[in-house]
Design a protein around this nucleic acid. Structure first.
Length: 300
DNA sequence: AATCCGTGGAC
DNA sequence: TGTCCAAGGAT
């Protein structure tokens, strides 16, 4: 690759060791293959939203075999997609991916758009995913900031253990200033930071001894101080609507045909009022359909 | 801006 | 064992 030619001085010092480390260490993931289509990249990015790589891999492979193009998925029913989504979690992502495929087919000639603004208009594609697809699928210069990039930036540049609870304008500004000017370099930078955050600069027990940026890391230089700030509130799980909804969708996914209302409510494992609320919510979201007469099932 | 939305592995 | 958290998005 060519010279980094970044605007900021920090990137000058970080780019080469990061690139060398990536070339040596990066995982061989199918959506990183040169032959992977932009659609394959887009599907991977949506599946990877809040879901670990190891769980995405087998589902992505089946998905791409079944629906190798946006038009293939656009022709499928949402229920098929939710079933193929399996246990990745947040199954509304599967519905939005179908909607995105329909938009790509009907509004964009069946091809995944390369421009961030156009990608952003697709259902389920937000700031991160639009930038990631533009960068990784099309080699565009885009500011890609995910949880890994935020954490690496926080440590290496800002010198704190963890980033703020939610993505801030200051973080976006910092990432924008760090991004190499050259498009090809910017892609390397983005993927390198993400991989470093995933494999070395991890949330819990960072492997600083293996880090190619250790010598340049502001957090290490400061003595790796513990997180200073409001304790991060862990999300509750037991007894929540999310748990009950998950159980209902799981029951619908595994069922051969429509389930009676009573069976759906029982599957939720929740008190009746909560179970009713969750079923209503799933119907509203399009993750279930039916009525008391026909029974309830995944959408057709 | 804060909350909601699944799932399961790691520790 | 319970807590943490993983390539976020929508409202």
């Amino acid at each position: 690759m060519g010279a980094p030619s970044p605007v900021g001085g920090a990137t000058n010092r970080l780019f080469d060791p990061l690139s060398a480390w990536y070339a040596r260490t990066a995982r061989d993931l199918p959506w990183r293959d040169a032959g992977c289509s932009p659609w394959g990249v887009l599907v991977s990015e949506v599946m990877l939203q809040q879901t670990p790589v190891a769980r995405v891999l087998p589902v992505w492979r089946r998905w791409m075999e079944q629906w190798p193009t946006p038009a293939d998925l656009a022709a499928a029913g949402p229920g098929e997609a939710v079933r193929a989504w399996d246990r990745l979690g947040y199954p509304r992502r599967a519905l939005r991916l179908v909607d995105a495929a329909v938009a790509i087919r009907d509004l964009h000639g069946g091809r995944v758009p390369a421009e961030e603004e156009v990608l952003r208009s697709l259902p389920g594609i937000g700031e991160y995913t639009a930038a990631a697809v533009a960068s990784f699928a099309f080699g565009r210069r885009a500011v890609v900031v995910d949880t890994n990039v935020r954490r690496v930036q926080a440590r290496v540049v800002t010198g704190v253990a963890l980033p703020a609870p939610s993505y801030t304008a200051a973080e976006r500004r910092l990432a924008t200033g760090l991004l190499p000017e050259d498009a090809a370099d910017s892609v390397q930078w983005n993927i390198g930071l993400m991989e470093l955050g995933a494999l070395v600069c991890t949330a819990r027990a960072p492997r600083c001894r293996e880090c190619p940026l250790q010598a340049e890391c502001a957090w290490v230089a400061a003595g790796s101080p513990a997180h200073d700030g409001p304790p991060r509130r862990g999300q509750k799980w037991a007894g929540t609507d999310r748990q009950a909804r998950g159980r209902i969708v799981q029951a619908l996914r595994e069922a051969d045909g429509p389930l009676p209302r009573a069976e759906v409510l029982a599957a939720s494992g929740a008190p009746e009022a909560q179970a009713e609320r969750c079923l209503a919510g799933l119907l509203e979201d399009g993750l279930a359909e039916g009525d008391d007469a026909t029974g309830y099932a995944l959408p057709t």
